[in-house]
Design a protein around this nucleic acid. Structure first.
Lengths: 142, 142
DNA sequence: TATTTTTGCTTGCATTTTACAAGTGCAAAT
DNA sequence: ATTTGCACTTGTAAAATGCAAGCAAAAATA
């Protein structure tokens, strides 16, 4: 379980205190890019997160105000996880990681295509994804 | 010690495999923004990294080609750590973390000023810091 | 020249975090 | 009424981290 203490006043350090681990950002990636939004969805991801770690990360992200738990429209047995605006605003960070990766890693073609699209008009790309995610959020809350 | 295996083909995941921990990015921050470049410098940072962790992270970052060890011009007892181009290219990621932090954390005034400067002309800011870091690197290597 | 200090680590060990397997309780489907 | 699916929790072994101490080479000091 995570502690809520900051190691310093430095924003980089404080950010790492929140999600400086190997898993949190993958959950956010799944929420933003792969339309995943249930516990089961996240478990199915390629990286095979352990169930207890997933539960712990989701709890942390919720405490930090990055994700929210909502009632799933399909079933009471399901939980719908969504990004808050604070979470959606992490998109530019993810994009820069993609851009850096593209330069230094070899990357699957389909991802490469999306990165290219994002790079060509970053502001527009961010806006359109933000709109989509917010739309989904409002749609469920109403 | 870190293993060299990637959990998946995803660039976000691969990047987290490299420096998805609470310390690596702080070392990179110190190299980029605070002109730190020796083992002792990094130890003195506010967050108080343990000596064995620092050694392990520096080794990892070197293996990944993000930092380089060079002879220190002042003394053979010292080691000069510098960022490679691959490391310098992480600057935009750090900037986006700063931008996000500015929106959601309260931040020391002097850092806030620098963030503002970076935000006003990001491309120029990146270029100027890159030039400075590369200059330092070439200066020592010659 | 001899001694102390600085520098960049390594080592040992206690504590914390993570990984893996199994289990639990509620909801929904059969 | 029973089984299946979903979102977790629990137990335990393995790994990573934190802390204190130690160590060798180089530099500074006496």
């Amino acid at each position: 379980m995570k502690k809520n203490k900051n190691r310093s006043e430095c924003p980089i350090s404080s950010t790492l205190d929140l999600f400086g681990d190997k898993w949190s950002l993958l959950i956010i990636r799944d929420l933003i890019f792969f339309n995943k939004n249930t516990y089961g969805d996240f478990l199915k991801s390629e990286e095979k997160i352990a169930t207890n770690i997933l539960a712990s990360r989701l709890k942390g992200l919720e405490e930090y105000g990055i994700v929210e738990k909502l009632e799933h429209p399909d079933s009471k047995a399901k939980v719908l996880y969504t990004l808050t605006q604070k979470g959606i605003d992490l998109l530019p960070i993810l994009l820069e990681i993609y851009f850096w990766s593209e330069k230094y890693f070899s990357i699957p073609a389909e991802i490469k295509a999306r990165i290219k699209e994002a790079r060509q008009n970053k502001a527009q790309f961010v806006k359109s994804i933000t709109k989509e995610l917010r739309g989904r959020l409002l749609n469920v809350q109403k």
